[in-house]
């Protein structure tokens, strides 16, 4: 049997992923995180009288803290299996990827373990984040004048 024929056979017995369902769950959960974020900004700016620009930084710090705490308690990965990418795409997922890598490699030393591996997953996000920010920044400068 050649490779093409075999790939058809594999396809026949490979179940389809529920992409629409997964997407919908991720959309709802991701949206909820957004609502919580907005709520936190409003809370910080109206009740604690923090200027709204700084309130958004406080909001991010709060979400990162909650994300890392849930990772450390071993809850986050269980939530991921239910919420699919809904928790991974927002900032909570970024924090989670770093704290989970740090936890995994802490026994291999501060430098050779945590230091060398903490960006194992997050490194890609940072690199492509910086590159795309650079290009979108240029586009914004060209079309909207900065």
């Amino acid at each position: 049997m050649d490779k093409n024929k075999y790939s058809l056979l594999v396809k026949k017995y490979t179940p389809k992923e529920d992409r629409l369902f997964n997407g919908l769950i991720a959309f709802i959960v991701g949206g909820l995180i957004g609502i919580i974020g907005q709520f936190l900004i409003s809370f910080y700016s109206s009740y604690l009288s923090i200027p709204s620009k700084e309130a958004s930084i406080f909001m991010i710090i709060t979400l990162i803290f909650i994300g890392c705490l849930l990772t450390g308690l071993g809850i986050f990965d269980k939530l991921v299996s239910y919420t699919r990418c809904g928790l991974i795409i927002p900032i909570t997922g970024f924090a989670h990827s770093m704290s989970s890598a740090a936890l995994e490699y802490k026994k291999e030393g501060l430098v050779t373990g945590i230091g060398a591996n903490i960006f194992k997953l997050a490194g890609t996000v940072i690199m492509f984040g910086v590159v795309s920010a650079y290009f979108f920044g240029i586009l914004r400068l060209i079309f909207f004048g900065g």
Partner: peptide, 17 residues
Amino acid sequence: EKQFRQPVEYGGPKRKT
């Protein structure tokens, strides 16, 4: 999981297969 996939606590979504 640690060696072949991702850190254990990361627990990224998995496929049915």
